[in-house]
Amino acid sequence: MITIIDYNSGNRGSLTNTLDKLKIKYEVTSDPEKIAIASKVVLPGVGRAAQAMKELRKRNLIDVIRDLKVPFLGICIGLQVLADFSEEDDTICLSIISGKVKKFSSEMGLKIPQIGWNQVKFAENAKKDPLFQDIPDGSYFYFVNSYFFDASKEDIRAVTPYGVEFPSVIKKDNFYATQFHLEKSGEIGLKLLNNFLNL
């Protein structure tokens, strides 16, 4: 059983469709009590950091998320809100993983938002992580983002080249997060999600 945090985040549907496909049971809820006792938690999301934080606050979910001890997976905005701070609308975030969310620089000739399939290269500390079991190094995942989480080296599990080598998978303690949309990344995305569910 997996608990998906419902906070009006837009793309919940594609995640539940994916779980249906994998025949995984899930519950979609914004009830802090249910989330606090969940065995696995996913925080999906598209949209803006400020909006996401506002919706989480409104539902009294800030401390509940911070206090989670079970495997947690943040996706896209669900990754970015784990930071201390986001440059997007100068948003104070959850401070679960230290670092700041920054915008890609268009000075580098990049298209913003980044839209499309980009390479995910594992960091040395990720090689034995069960999350990446049977996922080849350098696999392509689907990204849609204008901002990235400039995390500390010890929390980075994979990077992706887009102007800079930005962190695309982050992990600290029980908190995992991917900048890409694994629910839109075809077979390889399903595999990664499955690995998370088997943690």
């Binding site: 580098m108 980044q114 499309g116 399939w117 980009n118 392509y140 990204f143 887009y162 102007g163 080598e165």
Partner: peptide, 11 residues
């Protein structure tokens, strides 16, 4: 050294 690095695939 200023050239943009990007692994973004053409779709």
């Amino acid at each position: 050294a200023t050239k943009t690095i990007s692994g973004l695939a053409k779709r």
